[in-house]
Nucleic acid binder design. Structure first.
Length: 424
DNA sequence: TCTGGGGTCCTAGGACCC
DNA sequence: TCTGGGGTCCTAGGACCC
């Protein structure tokens, strides 16, 4: 029997912070987005206090004071490293692991014995990951990805499952869907939920009782796929991770934003450089790119500007210097004098192809193999000595200067100088 | 004062060609 | 100069996910 497991880290970013701050167990904790803008991860205690996902920090100042909520700026170096540890442990328990996001992975559990055995096996995995990494996880197992996700939410919600819930019979499936709100189903977002409520659809079970053809005509092929998955028919397969089709690096800037043109160029150069590095990591080239920058839409009292410039690269590339150069050219071509305060900017690489699939160009005057060798050497140095050790001059000296991070935890696991100390 | 970042997929509509 | 329809490709935008 084909079975999917979905392993989901509980309150992942908060859990990462707590591994190194065990004194915060059982207390309300939140992690903030870049620039300490919004809440992006909450402990159960923070959730029960009514702190909503995505709410701006400034709107919950009172609650933070009143309930003594601990705050952390996001520390992606730490989370990335903890994620690698979790994933590497999980991969020991399945022939095929498909990482879906920083804190979630699908595991192939097909033909792994009967339900009882599988249940014990699942609980064992949850226990070992918890012990080995300090991160609590929930495991859902079912015949489709969408149902596995439902199961993982049950595993998280009810202690009795000991971290692992299996939906493997029609009876269990129907019972679970009756108890599951339709808006919580993977693939059904806010709009679809609103639309469905007009037809009296409240639970996932209500949704499955709708006519399939009707669902397809109203919610298109994606909605219909979700409908079939909930019926137990796997439509989304467990495949190798395909190369990304677009790569984007963007940030909003702290406080009032950036008004100085040179500073904006410096930021964009850094985004372009990051993009190019990611592109090389997946062994790809891009043929088109976009550079954008805009002012704050919340500041209606200030002049607004929206730069969105597309660049077609005659010759596909993943070379940082070239991608930086083209991004800056694009930005300059669109820059207007108007004293704009840019709040966010970014670079997107797209039209991506494999680097083994290079189309030569008669008019290419640059020596591509030389450039590639140089780039390779730079990547190696930066991997060894830290990102940004070797960089283009326009990238400036302080890669983080426009980002606000007032509550940053240490890089416990990746920086020797910030390793945990234990007092005797 | 302060409002995240990085993706995927699908559809509709326009441009263009025959 | 007027008439029609079908196909493809591209792009923008929306909806969804974490």
């Amino acid at each position: 029997m084909e079975l999917f497991g979905l392993a989901d880290c509980n309150n992942f970013f908060v859990s990462c912070e707590r591994v190194f701050r065990p004194d915060l167990n059982g207390k309300p904790v939140i992690v903030l987005s870049n620039n300490d803008g919004c809440v992006i991860s909450r402990s159960n205690e923070a959730k029960s206090l009514g702190i909503k996902m995505g709410i701006p920090l400034f709107q919950i100042r009172k609650e933070i004071e009143k309930y003594d909520i601990s705050i952390f700026s996001s520390n992606y170096v730490l989370y990335g490293d903890m994620s690698r540890r979790v994933m590497s442990l999980l991969s020991c328990y399945t022939p095929k692991l498909d990482q879906y996001s920083i804190d979630e992975a699908f595991l192939d559990f097909s033909d792994m014995g009967d339900t009882d055995q599988l249940h014990k096996y699942g609980q064992e995995i949850v226990k070992i990951v918890g012990k080995g990494t300090g991160i609590p996880i929930s495991l859902g197992i079912a015949p489709t990805r969408t149902l596995a996700k439902v199961a993982s939410k049950f595993a998280k919600k009810y202690k009795g499952y000991h971290g692992c819930c299996i939906i493997d019979t029609d009876e269990k499936r129907k019972k679970a869907l009756e108890l599951f709100e339709v808006g919580d189903v993977f693939g059904i977002g806010r709009k679809m939920k609103e639309h469905l409520s007009k037809y009296g659809v409240r639970t996932a079970a209500d949704f499955t009782r709708l006519d399939g053809e009707w669902v397809r005509s109203v919610f298109s092929i994606t909605g219909y796929r979700t409908w079939r998955e909930l019926h137990g028919e796997a439509c989304i397969s467990l495949d190798e991770l395909p190369a990304k089709k677009s790569i984007c690096v963007s940030r909003s800037f702290a406080n009032e934003g950036i008004t100085d043109r040179r500073q904006l160029e410096e930021a964009v150069a850094n985004f372009a450089s990051d993009c190019a590095r990611k592109l090389r990591e997946q062994k790809s080239l891009c043929q088109q790119m976009t550079v954008f920058a805009f002012t704050s839409r919340f500041r209606t009292d200030q002049p607004q500007d929206f730069i969105n410039h597309n660049i077609r690269l005659e010759i596909s590339t993943n070379d940082s210097s070239e991608i930086i150069k083209r991004a800056i050219e694009g930005l300059r071509a669109n820059y207007r004098n108007g004293n704009f305060a840019y709040k966010k900017a970014g670079v997107i690489l797209w039209d991506i192809i494999s680097d083994s699939n290079v189309q030569g160009n008669l008019f290419d005057t640059r020596d591509r193999s030389k450039i590639s060798a140089l780039q390779h050497t730079i990547d190696n140095i930066n991997r060894r000595d830290g990102l940004g050790t070797v960089r283009n001059a326009i990238q400036g000296n302080d890669l983080r200067k426009n980002i606000k991070r007032e509550h940053l935890s240490r890089q416990y696991t990746t920086n020797f100088d910030e390793i945990m100390t234990i007092k005797a």
